[in-house]
Simulated scan of single mutants.
Amino acid sequence: MNTVSKTAYKTVFGSLGNYQKGGIEVTQGDARHYVFSNVFEVAAKSVPYERVVVGKNLEYVVETARADGQSPWFACAHDEFAIAMDGEVRIDFIALDQAPAQADGAVLVEPAGRKMGHVVLRQGHQSLLPAGCAYRFSADKACTLLLQSKLGALSVEKWAEICLH
């Protein structure tokens, strides 16, 4: 008779102020071919709105950022996405009179254009950051963002500092 052991799993949501560092168990291959990082830990050790790359697939990246206070204005020549991992973040938008130069990744801008409004993200909420629009983040309390973009001039790669391998 086969006996099956049942393991109870509990989902625990982390936050910038309360996370537990995880790990990786390699079941096949060489551990040097895998990386693992914790977005909350990376954001906690970063300056506000530093866009630290935590995942990469060709030219596309997933960046984490610590939202704390008000960010500078960003814009991008392609669509991006932002996800609030914890806390609450406001994103203000301006439709730019002149689109940013064609470049991969976000760039800093001094926006001139028409105000488009804002969205408020809470844990798990996602927002499109449309191409050709300026956007600025605001957070009253420090929290964590995940950003999907392309590798660009503002993308910071710290693989040796942030990964277990």
Rank of each mutant, 00 (worst) to 15 (best):
V4Q: 10
G132N: 04
H78F: 14
D30M: 09
P72V: 14
Y19L: 04
G117C: 08
H118S: 15
L16I: 14
C133T: 01
L58F: 02
G124E: 07
V53R: 03
E59N: 02
G69Q: 10
V12R: 02
V26P: 06
A43M: 04
Y49V: 01
K141H: 08
G117Q: 13
A112H: 09
F93T: 10
R51E: 12
G29E: 02
G132W: 12
V47Y: 13
A8K: 15
D68T: 06
A101Q: 14
E88V: 11
A95P: 00
D68W: 01
E63N: 05
K56A: 09
L164Y: 13
N38R: 05
S5D: 15
D140G: 01
D68K: 02
T3Y: 15
I24N: 01
T7P: 13
L146H: 11
K6T: 01
V42L: 07
C76M: 06
L145K: 00
G22V: 11
G14V: 09
Y135S: 10
E25R: 12
A44Q: 06
T27R: 12
K21Q: 03
E50C: 10
T144P: 00
H125Y: 12
V156H: 07
G69K: 04
F40K: 08
R32Q: 11
A112Y: 06
Q20N: 10
S149G: 07
E59W: 01
V109E: 09
I83Q: 12
K141C: 03
G113R: 00
T11Q: 12
T27F: 15
P111I: 01
F13L: 15
V47C: 04
K56M: 11
K6S: 02
N2V: 15
S138F: 13
M1Y: 06
K115T: 13
E25Q: 13
